[in-house]
Design a protein around this nucleic acid. Structure first.
Length: 248
DNA sequence: CGGCCCTAATTT
DNA sequence: AAATTAGGGCCG
């Protein structure tokens, strides 16, 4: 235990004195939600995910977005592909083709432009869910853009998001049977002198074009929908309220 | 207008 | 099966 603490302190010291930021996922893992041993946790350079082999989509995807990363410069077109870190991945391009549903990124492509590897890994199906096109390109995108602005403002944002399968009323797509979620959740946390500040979002997987405020709620509310403890590692974190003035 | 979210058709 | 090309709508 002592050795582990020492290593963590060393990592922290290295990051802060070197004038550079750790690559996401953060060395501290503060963005990670609570999870148990039955989950298939996949760690990539830019994000950590829990891949669900029944729904064929992630249960959650988490990453830290720093100000430096939010202004990333790499670009290029990558193709959606199966994740080499996942054993027996089933979802494929064919399942989504002509389904009417977008191949929606959980960790956004635009958050991964700080590294070619991170960018490529964002196209793994581990990070992809069927999303309504209007929702993905409008309401969800606005929340993603807001998150990048927050990273620039606060220096770093912890992000966790994923599908809410709910009743599964949209069924599945493709031969593999990829689950179409009822909705999507996203939770953000930033560090402030007064402790960690959080906000959550919940967006139905239907035509949604509103501004982020319309979908905002407390992280406690998001947890009551997902049934999962979010940001369990953050000390002095407030999840029972939020002030939209801090987030707009 | 560029950036971002993509799709579908075509070529290899 | 994958890479290339062309195209579309919204936002700041």
């Amino acid at each position: 235990m002592k050795a582990l603490t020492f290593i963590l302190l060393l990592l922290l010291a290295t990051c802060s004195t070197g004038g550079m930021r750790c690559a996401s996922p953060s060395a501290e893992g503060l963005e990670l939600p609570a999870y148990d041993a039955s989950e298939d946790i996949v760690v990539h350079l830019g994000y950590t995910a829990s891949y669900n082999h029944t729904t064929l989509i992630p249960d959650w995807v988490a990453w830290e977005l720093t100000a430096e990363e939010a202004g990333g410069m790499n670009d290029g077109q990558y193709s959606f592909s199966r994740d080499p870190e996942v054993k027996f991945p089933k979802a494929s391009r064919e399942d989504y083709a002509n389904s009417g549903w977008d191949k929606g990124h959980m960790a956004p492509r635009a958050d991964m432009k700080w590294s070619c590897q991170a960018l490529e890994e964002s196209y793994y199906f581990t990070n992809i869910c069927p999303q309504n096109h209007e929702m993905n390109s409008q309401a969800w995108r606005k929340i993603e853009e807001l998150t990048r602005r927050l990273a620039l403002r606060y220096g770093s944002v912890y992000v966790v998001c994923g599908p809410v399968v709910g009743t599964g009323r949209y069924g599945t797509i493709g031969k593999a049977g990829v689950q179409v979620p009822d909705a999507f959740f996203k939770a953000l946390a930033v560090n402030t002198p007064d402790g960690y500040r959080t906000v959550g979002f919940l967006v139905e997987n239907s035509r949604q074009d509103g501004s982020p405020r319309r979908y905002a709620m407390t992280v406690d509310s998001v947890e009551s929908v997902t049934g999962r403890n979010l940001f369990p590692s953050l000390p002095e974190v407030s999840e029972a309220s939020f002030d939209w003035n801090d987030w707009k």
